[in-house]
């Protein structure tokens, strides 16, 4: 591999963009296809499918046997609310391989003491979220119960096409949230993408148990439905 190819590959990964390295097995020739270049690539359809599955592999192409090394960004978990549930959810997400960020403008909650070793941002969503590169490889969770914080955050997550968006609150709380967000211009299709009440129904009671139910639901979204959708 040429050093400049490796450098570009690492740069795309650092920017959280999908990228595929195509290696011609017979000649050893290589080229990099970035997410932006897929559409005009002769093997675009093949590459698109591989990125969707997140799977590297060998393929017979019109030019001969080629190996496709697929790099999709590692999943990110963004948690709005430095609350009790987050104190379990954040380290749990980290253990499962997510890059975790906690956002809460309330400085009494967003302290490093409450979240040792984790990235905590004590800012409002409009300041904290844009630099985070919230994207389709991001799971987004709103846990503050405060519409001033959760509502703009959820709007941001919906606009960025996160693979999972969950919002804490009872059915009653969620109904009020739906009314507010509709008045703010969101559609039924947008709102249908929100997981609320949040988490799998495992009878969770304690904050830590609720964190487990949320992480389980995120895992299901990551591993099950996109795959099934890709196969269809």
């Amino acid at each position: 591999m040429k050093l400049d190819v490796l450098h570009k590959l690492n740069a795309e990964r650092a920017a959280r963009r999908a990228v595929v390295l195509v290696t011609d097995i017979a000649s050893g020739e290589q080229r990099l296809v970035t997410a932006a270049e897929i559409a005009k690539d002769p093997l675009g359809a093949l590459i698109e499918k591989r990125i969707r599955m997140g799977k590297s592999g060998m393929e017979e192409t019109p030019q001969g046997k080629a190996f496709f090394t697929v790099h999709v960004p590692s999943p990110q978990l963004v948690i709005m609310g430095a609350v009790h549930i987050s104190q379990t959810l954040a380290p749990l997400g980290q253990m499962l391989g997510y890059d975790v960020t906690i956002v809460d403008p309330r400085t009494a909650f967003a302290t490093p003491e409450r979240f040792p070793g984790l990235k905590v941002i004590a800012e409002w969503p409009d300041v904290a979220l844009p630099p985070l590169n919230v994207d389709r490889y991001t799971a987004f969770v709103a846990l503050t119960h405060d519409p001033k914080i959760d509502d703009p955050a959820l709007k941001h997550a919906l606009a960025r096409d996160c693979f999972y968006i969950g919002a804490l609150g009872s059915r009653k709380t969620h109904a009020k949230r739906v009314t507010r967000l509709k008045e703010a211009g969101l559609t039924d299709a947008d709102l249908a993408r929100l997981h609320a009440p949040i988490g799998l129904d495992i009878g969770a009671i304690s904050p830590a148990e609720i964190a487990v139910s949320i992480m389980a639901e995120i895992t299901a979204r990551l591993r099950q439905e996109p795959k099934e959708a890709a196969a269809a």
Binding site: L3, L6, H7, L9, N10, R13, A14, H71, S74, G97
Partner: peptide
């Protein structure tokens, strides 16, 4: 993680 391995490869070469 694979990304760190490939980053290390780039750093080593440099």
């Amino acid at each position: 993680r694979d990304e760190d391995i490939l980053k290390a490869a780039e750093d080593w070469r440099k």
